[in-house]
């Protein structure tokens, strides 16, 4: 175990996210195959790849939903490979789900309130949340930040698809996120809603880095400064958006493959 000073200095220079030889098996299927990648603090990365390439599995390994079968994952220098998911979240990691995982019987505000509560103290508090709680206030602000104030009191089950996707993002912004994993936040959105999404992502504070899985090149290129291309559970290429776009192998595999 490293001393506190070592860990602090490591955190200062460490990558936000660092994967070393991460694999994940589902039975005989190798969903992630020896993935090594690093993302700097504040960096914004897009992950491309066809269906079943292992993009979501990569996220699940990082958040601990489905921990890796082998390999090491470091988050700001700290080895989190075997942490339970909630410990990773409390350290500033966040994610959204490709298929919305929300609380349909609760209101929009209560969903966001739960998210704020999850990364603060008092998770076991027997006190009832009040309007003027600091935490409730930050929940209200978050709802506003994702443009959902108009439906704040509505039950989530009654929201439109696009609104549910926006709420997914709000849940990932609760507390003090340091790094966020967005799993296809733009999928299924109308053009207007996509523009709104791009605006929400661009207005995030600069120190918050993220990885965004996105099939739509137009969206990906506007919100990311680097791109990783996945195929068959492996990272195939990494580079700037321009490099990836002009890469012949990528074009054959992906861009020509009927996507986007």
């Amino acid at each position: 175990m490293a001393s506190v000073a070592e860990r602090l200095s490591a955190a200062g220079t460490a990558n936000a996210l660092e994967l070393r030889g991460v694999s994940r098996l589902f039975g005989a299927l190798v969903a992630l195959d020896d993935v090594t990648m690093s993302v700097r603090p504040g960096e914004r990365r897009a992950v491309l790849g066809s269906n079943g390439a292992g993009k979501t599995t990569l996220f699940n390994a990082v958040t601990g939903d489905f921990p890796p079968s082998s390999g090491v994952i470091r988050f700001f220098g700290e080895d989190i490979t075997w942490f339970p998911p909630h410990e990773r979240i409390r350290r500033g990691l966040r994610r959204t789900y490709q298929i919305s995982l929300l609380f349909g019987d609760l209101s929009v505000l209560d969903n966001v309130y739960l998210a704020c509560r999850g990364v603060s103290r008092g998770r076991f508090s027997l006190l009832r949340p009040r309007r003027n709680d600091a935490l409730m206030q930050s929940a209200i602000e978050l709802v506003e930040a994702v443009h959902l104030s108009a439906v704040r009191e509505r039950l989530v089950a009654q929201l439109s698809y696009g609104e549910q996707r926006q709420l997914e993002i709000a849940l990932a912004l609760a507390g003090a996120p340091r790094f966020i994993l967005f799993d296809e936040p733009a999928a299924g959105l109308a053009p207007g809603e996509r523009a709104e999404l791009v605006e929400i992502l661009s207005s995030l504070p600069r120190h918050i880095g993220y990885i965004i899985i996105e099939h739509d090149m137009d969206v990906a290129l506007r919100v990311a400064e680097s791109v990783s291309m996945m195929h068959n559970g492996r990272i195939l290429k990494e580079g700037t958006p321009a490099e990836i776009e002009s890469d012949r192998e990528v074009q054959e595999l992906y861009l020509g493959g009927g996507h986007g």
Binding site: H86, L106, R123, L127
Partner: peptide, 27 residues
């Protein structure tokens, strides 16, 4: 009372969607 406290709300969240609750930082 407890059902509408932070603890009670979180418990109902766990009931409805344990995986998401973990991903929100709840043990």
């Amino acid at each position: 009372y407890v059902s509408r406290s932070s603890f009670g709300l979180a418990l109902q969240g766990v009931r409805d969607n344990a995986r998401r609750m973990e991903a929100l930082g709840f043990n």
